[in-house]
């Protein structure tokens, strides 16, 4: 018996040892009338159980599209995944049948959307929508599902859950609606939660409540969390590691402490300098010149080169690979050493 046990502990492609989720060389493109928009161009990242990965980027950087590809909720067509692997617990989800993926979606990987009001069905009570998770996935009766829904609402600390279970989404405030979204994502105790700008639509005091709740529940269930956001402040508060995206690529990938103290990519550096700080009255803000690129016409070489203060000829011709910077860190810049060194 002991021998067999030993064998199973050997790091064979064991689901337990591989990262919870690993995205490898993911490409997503959209076929539009204006041509092919390359939204995601070779993205790699991984998340372990209990870990928080923040995917940071501006609108159009491909952060949401890559998450939707992981979730399997892209509209295809117009979207297409020409290349890439999405390994969840060691298995490539892109090779699974629709039926298999449906078993994972909601049960193993759940998503929290930005706009709770438009993500919830306005003509069904929140109790019904929460209970749906149990009725569909676990075949519970209406009564049992409702009891479970109340339990969930309690867990995300919605006051008077028993009285409010029959209320409709419009009867809740923005923060409460986002709690319902979180409750729905948690319902089946998934291993991974993808939160796409979960607090962007909320006021700061409510944002703090919601982020605190999310962090608590994550620790409780030891879930992996992918937090998609454009807010450098929120990232600093909760993330373990960060992937910064620009024009469909990860330009910098690092543990959270490194990136803020010493960015290794000019884009990250520019972003950090361009945000005003609450605790400092700054001088003139540093502004990254120009605009994010059109995804149907991404500049050749490094996509950031037209806006980059350090761009040289090589940046216009060669696409920089993700160079390793120290341990567990990478920067897709030809001049990462110079960027770090300054």
């Amino acid at each position: 018996m002991t021998v067999i046990d030993d064998i199973s502990d050997v790091p064979t492609p064991d689901a337990k040892l591989a990262p919870l989720l690993e995205v490898r060389d993911l490409h997503v493109e959209f076929h539009t009338r204006d041509g092919v928009a390359k939204a995601v161009n070779g993205v790699n990242y991984s998340v372990n159980a209990g870990e928080t990965l923040a995917v940071l980027g501006e609108s159009g950087s491909g952060k949401s599209v890559s998450a939707q590809a992981v979730m399997g909720i892209l509209d295809m067509p117009p979207a297409r995944i020409p290349k890439g692997e999405i390994l969840f617990q060691g298995r490539d989800m892109l090779k699974m049948s629709g039926e298999e993926r449906r078993k994972i979606r909601g049960r193993k990987i759940a998503m929290i959307f930005q706009d709770a009001l438009s993500s919830l069905n306005p003509v069904l009570s929140v109790g019904y929508q929460l209970g749906e998770m149990y009725r569909v996935h676990q075949g519970l009766s209406r009564k049992d599902a409702k009891a479970k829904a109340i339990e969930l609402m309690d867990r995300v600390r919605i006051p008077a859950a028993r009285e409010r279970v029959g209320d409709y989404p419009h009867q809740f405030s923005g923060g409460m609606r986002q709690r319902i979204m979180i409750a729905m994502a948690l319902a089946l105790e998934p291993d991974l939660i993808i939160a796409d700008e979960p607090t962007t639509a909320l006021d700061v005091t409510v944002q703090a409540q919601v982020m605190e709740l999310l962090a608590e529940l994550q620790a409780e269930y030891n879930m992996g969390l992918i937090l998609i956001t454009h807010d450098l402040g929120v990232v600093a508060d909760v993330a373990d590691k960060i992937a910064v995206m620009y024009a469909g690529r990860i330009v910098e990938d690092a543990p959270v402490h490194d990136i803020y103290s010493k960015p290794a990519h000019p884009y990250t550096k520019g972003l950090l300098q361009s945000i005003p700080r609450l605790d400092q009255k700054g001088q003139e803000l540093y502004a990254i010149k120009g605009l994010p690129p059109n995804l149907t016409r991404i500049p050749s070489g490094c996509a950031f080169n037209p806006r980059c203060p350090m761009a040289q000829d090589i940046c216009r011709t060669d696409v920089p690979q993700l160079h390793p910077v120290g341990t567990a860190r990478g920067s897709a810049c030809h001049f990462w050493k110079e960027t770090l060194g300054e």
Partner: peptide
């Protein structure tokens, strides 16, 4: 205190006042 500060070092020593309710 609810505003996230873009500095992970501040995470530990910043006091957060989390208001209840809306």
């Amino acid at each position: 205190s609810a505003v996230p500060v873009p500095d992970p070092e501040a995470r530990e020593h910043r006091e957060r006042i989390i208001l209840s309710g809306d």
